[in-house]
Write a protein that binds this DNA or RNA. Sequence first.
DNA 1: CATATAATTGTAAACGTTTACATACCAGTA
DNA 2: TACTGGTATGTAAACGTTTACAATTATATG
Lengths: 368, 368
Amino acid sequence: MATIRDVAKLAGVSVATVSRVLNGSSKVSQQSREAVLKAQHELDFHLNASARTLARKDSEIIGVTVSDLSDPYFGCMVKACENAARRLSCSLIVCQGFHEEQREIVAIDTLLTHHCRGLIVHALTIPDDRMADYLRRVPSMVLINREVPGFEDRCVNIDNEKGEYLAVCQLIAAGHRHIAYIGSRHSILDAKERLTGYRRAMQEHGLSCPPQLMVADEPSLEGGIRAARELLARGVYFSAVAVYNDTMAAGSMSVFNSRGLQIPADISMVGFDDLLLARCLNPQLSTITNPVEEMGEAAVQLSNSLYLKQPAPYTLPNFDVRFVPRATIAAPAAQPWTDKLSPRPQKAAGESRAAAAFRRAQQELSGR
Amino acid sequence: MATIRDVAKLAGVSVATVSRVLNGSSKVSQQSREAVLKAQHELDFHLNASARTLARKDSEIIGVTVSDLSDPYFGCMVKACENAARRLSCSLIVCQGFHEEQREIVAIDTLLTHHCRGLIVHALTIPDDRMADYLRRVPSMVLINREVPGFEDRCVNIDNEKGEYLAVCQLIAAGHRHIAYIGSRHSILDAKERLTGYRRAMQEHGLSCPPQLMVADEPSLEGGIRAARELLARGVYFSAVAVYNDTMAAGSMSVFNSRGLQIPADISMVGFDDLLLARCLNPQLSTITNPVEEMGEAAVQLSNSLYLKQPAPYTLPNFDVRFVPRATIAAPAAQPWTDKLSPRPQKAAGESRAAAAFRRAQQELSGR
DNA sequence: CATATAATTGTAAACGTTTACATACCAGTA
DNA sequence: TACTGGTATGTAAACGTTTACAATTATATG
């Protein structure tokens, strides 16, 4: 592998001159510049990033950890991070934590070893105190989708509570009173905040949120499927469901569909995140925007600002959470098969199609 | 920032000993080891990856370029790459090319500057000869989803033609004879191969593929929407559509749905890639597997094997493309509104619902 | 106790850049 | 001509590791 010395020799100049040319310094004669570029091309030379890092004491690397890149949510986030990094002429290192404490720690340690200029960390299983430790020791570390007490200004977050509140208000505005909630079983901030948003919306409208209407599972397609089954199996009436995120909503919707329950005629739904997926579902899913690209971008900006110890550090924007009206919310059917919590509906003469579908689903799924 | 010297001093040993401890060398007394680890912890010391790279002449970095991380297809790919890299105790640098030649070149140059141990390149706009240049100069570079003549053994690919052939054969087996094709307008290998697969399947079954039944657009949700509209606007009869990928299929399906055309009763569909999305659609999309995670994994293996100049280099596995039966294929309706290519159907007395839907869609979309 | 051998430790030279500083050169001016 | 000031260039010391080799210490053996 050619080094800067080889280039210098071939171009007939000193290494300093080569370095100056390759870094775009102005103090170089046209003649030297051309000789150097020619030699570089001839030797197919590329500066060695490690050597440069060592000499400059700046890695020009932004590190980011996410839980799983195959989740489009993180794909969007990392996309935005890479773009922002490039604008700072940095490269991006990505590690995955997969929601396991050990792997999250390995991921962060990897980034530390690379002496990243900025660190964007999405790690939800590492406990607060350990996270606080990291934050204290690594000034340019920024957290995403999490809030560690005492470090609020280094956490990039949306107002999840407000988002879910908006979502549930829309259901209520459409006339629903029996609104179920399918949540995430991860004990993370998002999950708690969104649940709180649901509760607040219900309470503010004088509605109760009985535990039979709340269910939690993995925040994945499969989790959504299981959660919807569980909900039906309980045999409790609901005319609408607010779901933790779009992916779970997709899973739930497929269960309802396959059970003959029509969306939104029989059940209204609202998701969260506004993934591409939401527009692909049939009917298209009403949901809440989650400006994940802006968050990734902001996280990089903030981290860079911390790294540079700017006197006026970057201030996080107010991320917008908005309701996106699409096709999964309608007024509840005029005649629900019951308007009380009733765990075991009986077949009634002249029951409606929807009531029959509910009843059949409940009977099959409750395992008898 | 603490260095290995600080640790050595604090632990009362030489830097060599510290290095040995931190690299897990066996030739260290228990006593020294403990002293070093204690000092490391006290100083919160992390080895400097750049310095190590320089000394070892091995960056322990795998570089990968993709076009766009927000595309779940690449998300899955990069996920697998990161996992494979980690198993080789390497970190992963990701760059995005966004289907623009300049950005693809910048991406590759970035990786070269980092003197990556392995390079996985997804770059479709850089011309073959330039790509060949890179491959010649960088022995551990591996291409993905592309084939450059003379470097077939360094290209990781699936049999796209076979996949699309299988897909179309399924439609034919279900009884379809008027099968449209919605393709990608990118002039890349995948697109060509899949189109060839479609053609071959049609020809082998004595069916023609008239140009009116073929349309191409961006391989995105929006592209799928536009393509489906274009197809309907042409007013040519088809009872099934084979689509370049699942994302376009999702877009197309939403158009058909919103026009009152039922899937699969009126139109059968088959996608390609078997993304999570395919299972979220309603009805669930029949498609072709694309083992993208295995490919990412294999690409890293191959690249590493080339880097190590292994006498028996890693041999690429045969990637499996399979048809995944789901819910979007049914027999064609018994009585199509016409069985000829007929650009302007007239309203007929007693036309079927499907025929009416087709006619209306055509009239509205053809712009009159 | 002397010696041989093994285990542990230390010294110092790379690795490929950047950049402060020194030097050389040149044009313009007195 | 001598001097000034600026521009272009070169020299060499960092940067933080690894690792070959040398040196030291401990252990076993006769």
